[in-house]
Design a protein around this nucleic acid. Structure first.
Length: 645
RNA sequence: GCCGACGUGGCUCAGCUGGUAGAGCAGCGCAUUCGUAAUGCGCAGGUCAUCGGUUCGACUCCGAUCGUCGGCUCCA
């Protein structure tokens, strides 16, 4: 006999050998039907496992969000089982649950790619119909060794070795004809897995290292209900509709094709308006926030990059050019240029903190497969800033930068999440400088965030080569996260360039340096904006803010007066007198995502008014010319600048 | 870079098992003067990504290169 306690603190006595399912059944049939796994003394177990003794028990059903991970992981097994039926020579890697679904990495001889997915899908459905059970078995290392070597499962053998070293119990799960090395737990049977969809096929290196063999990865989505699955598939569809590459072409914002070179952005006139307005606000905001704006060249002698360390740590990503009197590098970062500006004269402690900033266009060689629309390019503009300060000023300067970054994110209603990126102590060769310095400085960044009351996640191994950093990920309207503002501490480069200031004591001291970017890359930030707003930019960024639409050419004269009025008020306005129906021209402005339209017919001419139409909403009523223009002017007003410092 | 898929006029796509290309939208012209998301007719536009190969003949088959897409790796 054993005694178990439920979450509501009720308890019951059970006989030895009683399984989780037995307990669930004794409570209610309904519960047993949807029980996925149970938690016993904080350990998740399969429903058909016997309860090992006294303890606390909680049954997790398909109504609990926690069950999703189990369902997804089990679905990976289900897919593997289906693949094995179709391709008996398949060798299996790993198949974990991921956000919204799962994947399995496999070497599948004979697999033809996406066109073969349908066959896998229908095999999976067949297994679901048969309601096949998951069977767990604890086996010895030798049994496992013989099982997997017999099948030539080279990847599993590798994993097995590691489990052996860890001393963990070795368990395998069998689903139909597929037995997998797996810690579990799993759903009782395949009927829990009916809400899945296979999404895509991709290559993935074994264990994530490009030195290893490349396996075939099949991605799938899985949920507890059809509804959740269909909501997710709709979400994916929505994301496709918002894709900045698609909208960027439709709205004529930029071009990056043809002989322009892969990974290079050509801003079209409309995109340039967006970019320029964003940059102008950025410049004004920076001046207000106490930054001095500077401008530095795109190319510099290679010696500069040797001194900065980029030549050693970043060369693979740099473009070089050679001329008669030596080798030059095209700048991949703006910091060395800003250092030259700092070093232009002897600096006093009275000048610190010295904040300089530049919209600096940089070029980095990116491997072809990494390129992606505006998000990942080879030439882009960093909204770069460098703060030179004393040790005492570091924390407050970092806090100011974080606040400044949030000013921009809030302006666009982006959510955010903060990450503190530290060095990987296991890989010191990847970083410049003395590990002891890193250890001294990393807590300062944490302190800056703690004092502000900001939550953050610490990630090791994500630091820049010259120092630890704070990354702010922005969350867009679809809940997706993107790389956003970054604040990077640097205690390396100042030493390399011998950067100093004269203190009140008359001695020279080493200056500290903070690198920071708020948009990150202007290109990518605009890509984010396009997707976040589905191309419906806030008025102040809209390439065209207003279209004047006379219903017939009889209204052209008055409409032109309206047009001149709007242009005079500073609006970016178009006058559409094309010989098309009013319906056609309205549609044209709507698909162009122009925020406002003034429709002018006979009635409006007579009363000297305009019918105002708002993008996406339709006719919002007739206003006097003056009020109408003012309405649009107000809607297109630039956001307020930050506090002057 | 790696794995897989794809690459036909500005855009979206047809083009069967090889016999030298079609549509809609956009553009241009003419007509139309219209009340809140597509008026009609006509015209023009493509060495079928590029370069090789197989073939009497290739958009269709093969190879390489370039580019794009989904991922991996990397990353602002």
């Amino acid at each position: 006999m054993a005694s178990i306690v439920f979450p509501d603190n009720s308890s019951r006595e059970i006989e030895q050998g009683t399984t989780g399912l037995d307990v669930a059944l004794s409570i209610s049939k309904g519960l047993a039907k949807k029980a996925v796994v149970f938690e016993f003394n904080n350990r998740l177990m399969d429903m058909n496992e016997s309860i090992p003794g006294d303890g606390r028990m909680r049954i997790i059903t398909s109504d609990d969000p926690e069950s999703l991970e189990i369902v997804r992981h089990s679905c990976a097994h289900l897919m593997a089982a289906a693949v094995l039926e179709l391709y008996p020579d398949t060798k299996f890697g790993v198949g974990p649950a991921i956000e919204n679904g799962f994947y399995y990495d496999m070497d599948i001889p004979g697999f033809k790619g996406e066109k073969d997915l349908e066959a896998v899908r229908s095999r999976m459905k067949r297994l679901i119909k048969k309601n096949v059970k998951f069977q767990k078995k604890v086996i010895s290392y030798d049994e496992a060794l013989s099982l997997f070597s017999q099948r030539g499962e080279r990847f599993k053998l590798e994993l097995l070795d590691e489990i052996k070293d860890s001393g963990e119990e070795i368990t395998v799960y069998t689903l139909g004809g597929f037995t997998d090395l797996c810690r579990g737990p799993h759903v009782p049977s395949t009927k829990f897995l009916s809400s899945f969809e296979l999404l895509s096929v991709a290559g993935a290196y074994w264990r994530g290292s490009e030195h290893n063999e490349m396996l075939t990865r099949i991605y799938g989505a899985a949920f507890n209900t059809r509804e959740e699955l269909s909501t997710h598939l709709t979400f994916l569809e929505e994301a496709r509709k918002r894709d900045h590459r698609k909208l960027g072409a439709e709205l004529e914002l930029y071009s990056s094709k043809g002989m322009g070179g892969a990974g290079f952005v050509y801003w079209l006139p409309k995109g340039t308006i967006v970019k320029e307005n964003l940059e102008n606000l950025w410049k004004d905001a920076h001046r207000r926030a106490g930054y001095q704006l500077v401008s530095t060249p795109h190319i510099a002698p290679v010696e500069l990059w040797k001194t900065s360390g980029h030549y050693d740590y970043y060369r693979d990503n740099m473009y070089f050019t050679e001329v008669e009197n030596g080798e030059y590098a095209i700048k991949p970062m703006n910091c060395p240029g800003h250092i030259i500006i700092y070093k232009n004269s002897k600096r006093s402690y009275k000048e610190l903190p010295m904040r300089i900033a530049e919209l600096g266009t940089v070029y980095r060689f990116e491997r072809s497969g990494a390129l992606h629309g505006l998000m990942r390019v080879r030439g882009f503009t960093v909204d770069d800033g460098h703060i030179f300060c004393t040790a005492d000023q570091i924390v407050s300067e970092i806090q100011d930068v974080v606040r400044f970054a949030l000013y921009f994110l809030k302006m666009f209603d982006f959510g955010y999440r903060i990450e503190l990126s530290l060095m990987d102590p296991a890989d010191p060769g990847h970083y410049a400088g003395d590990p002891a310095d890193w250890a001294r400085v990393e807590p300062l960044l944490a302190q800056a965030l703690d004092d502000m009351g900001e939550n953050y996640k610490t990630v090791t191994g994500e630091a820049a080569f010259y120092g630890p950093k704070i990354d702010i990920k922005l969350r867009d309207a679809l809940g997706r996260y993107w790389q956003g503002p970054t604040v990077q501490f640097d205690f390396n480069i100042p030493g390399r360039f011998d950067l100093s200031y004269v203190g009140p004591d008359g001695d020279e001291h080493r200056v500290y340096m903070v690198h920071r970017a708020l948009f990150g890359s202007v290109e990518r930030f605009i890509g984010n904006l396009i997707e976040h707003f589905t191309g419906n930019f806030p008025g102040w960024l809209s390439p065209v803010q207003l279209v004047i639409l006379p219903i017939t050419s009889a209204q052209n004269e008055f409409a032109e007066k309206v047009y001149k009025e709007a242009v005079g008020a500073g609006l970016r306005c178009e006058f559409d007198t094309r010989s098309e129906t009013i319906g056609y021209r309205i549609r044209s402005a709507e698909t162009g995502k122009v925020p406002y339209m003034f429709v002018i017919g006979e009635r409006e001419v007579e009363s000297g008014a305009v019918a105002v139409r708002r993008h996406g909403e339709g006719d919002i009523g007739t206003l006097t010319l003056e009020d109408a223009v003012q309405t649009v002017v107000d809607a297109c007003a630039r956001p307020a600048l930050p506090e002057r410092r």
